[in-house]
Write a protein that binds this DNA or RNA. Structure first.
Lengths: 140, 140
DNA sequence: TGACAATCATACAATTAGTACAATTCTGAG
DNA sequence: CTCAGAATTGTACTAATTGTATGATTGTCA
């Protein structure tokens, strides 16, 4: 049993602070502290759970909250990864630029495929509307 | 032994979009965009898999879906080819599917960055309007 | 003791990888 | 020229790895 220090977390089981909160906090700290860099894959829920001697659902819960907080990205069947997160002030300044770049990228591709402005904005409208329901990947 | 970019695909392993979907979407785009012409042989599942550093079954899955969609023709023992002439209805469907995929890609990214629906569609509107003028300065 | 949050157990779903196989093409001995 | 066998290509099925969903259990505290 080689104890590989996948991710070094110090849990206090008697602190009264829920485990999943402790996990969440410490990962957040390590991310903002630069210990965990963008695109780094975190241990799987099972691996981390084994290392911490807790149920993997507890880890999953922490991961889910971190995902909702935009710190990490969890993907079924693939794994969990740190998300690039720009500093707060820079983020605000860059936000609209980022969205603009995204929009222009979309428009550029669509234009290249000879779609009209009407088609482009119509599809955008439709997909925005049906986003929640059709979260499933577009398979068909 | 420079790895020739047989088929230039850009995979994002952390986007949340499955690899096989990304492969499928991008090939669809290149076909409907005219980058990949009829009768062109695509890389073999193994070659493309090696280039993308994924399992060849992942590529095979994308190929199979594209085959079922009538975009390509996969032939055991021979290879994979762009369909000579996509049936009109397939082409039409393909075009709209492609646009849909593009739109969802944009929305997905924007959502991930916590932009609201309003912001997303507003930016789209604005960029569509200013597309022509700003194109001169943004030629690739 | 009862309510509620935290944790755990179990079953499930999605994605990718592994292995064996079948169809086709290529190659070279005869 | 022919044909056996290797090489190449896609296919099918299965296994492994990952996160998800849901309900049961446990523990704490008013």
């Amino acid at each position: 049993m080689n104890d590989k220090p996948i991710l070094s977390l110090r849990l206090d089981f008697h602190s009264g602070l829920p485990i999943y909160i402790q996990i969440m906090n410490q990962i957040e700290q390590q991310v903002s502290g630069g210990v965990l860099k963008a695109d780094t894959q975190l241990p799987t829920v099972r691996a981390l759970a084994a290392e911490l001697r807790v149920n993997f659902n507890t880890v999953a819960r922490a991961y889910r909250l971190l995902d909702e907080a935009g710190v990490i990205s969890t993907q079924q069947g693939r794994g969990t990864y740190i998300i690039e997160k720009p500093p707060p002030e820079v983020e605000k300044k860059l936000r609209s630029q980022t969205l603009e770049a995204l929009a222009r990228q979309y428009i550029g591709e669509a234009k290249r495929l000879k779609f009209s402005d009407a088609e482009i904005s119509q599809m955008m409208k439709a997909q925005l509307k049906s986003w929640e329901e059709t979260q499933e990947t577009n398979l068909e």
